[in-house]
Write a protein that binds this DNA or RNA. Sequence first.
DNA 1: ATTATATATAAGCGTTCACTTATATGTCAA
DNA 2: TTGACATATAAGTGAACGCTTATATATAAT
Lengths: 127, 127
Amino acid sequence: MITAPDLPVFRAVADPTRRAILDLLMAGERAVNDLLKPFRMTQPAISQHLRVLREAGLVTERRDGRRRIYKLEAAPLRSVHEWAAHYERFWTDKLTTLGDYLDEMPDEPAKKQATSKRTKKRSTSKH
Amino acid sequence: MITAPDLPVFRAVADPTRRAILDLLMAGERAVNDLLKPFRMTQPAISQHLRVLREAGLVTERRDGRRRIYKLEAAPLRSVHEWAAHYERFWTDKLTTLGDYLDEMPDEPAKKQATSKRTKKRSTSKH
DNA sequence: ATTATATATAAGCGTTCACTTATATGTCAA
DNA sequence: TTGACATATAAGTGAACGCTTATATATAAT
């Protein structure tokens, strides 16, 4: 029974506005007002996005007078990067022939029955 | 004015069940029934998740008799991988001293006023 | 032909989302 | 001390989400 963990960073990063905010923060720390300017959106909307990012550990906040300075914390993005990296083999293998591709499959419960001529050549290639 | 593109792959991948499905498909093609088994969820729920994945280009479907065989298409995950890679510098720099870290910032409109002693030492050390 | 199997689609439902307007809180300026 | 400024929080709203049950569609088995 699969119960996949719900890493909040995936949800945080799913929204294009939040990705744009992270992008802005790559250029350096920013006050909310600065982050707000590039968007056609109200200030509370941005503050709410910042909260989601904060709860995902993607930004930290520092007070400076009446302003709040937000700083990028990229560490959680490393999880995303590494997660995607697990699939690297499957997008590079796109240049391989179909035959070789299938032969590298660990197992195939979803094989066609007797419609494939390739079957004869496959002698339980699991080891 | 920022209008970030809403890549559907980010949304598709935000759900833990869908990530688990992609994980299953790494082991090879699977019919819906096989994909369904590991979850405590009804068949339509899985079919709906598969639709989201299909519309994001993350899986393709092939008919085999009365079954539908789903296959992983990892190409869109490359975008995710590359997007996260842009931030690599920011999580590796975590071992650098704070001073060097700040000195590499392109600009900082969110700097404190006169409260930081570091300011004097900063002579645009970008090369 | 009838029935069973495999899957998709439709409709409904409670929850979450991304926003808005309104208001509260804290700080600086006059 | 009063008002402007910077930001957060609360409350409301419509749309989207993730799920369910019910049903449609297509193929296979009897």
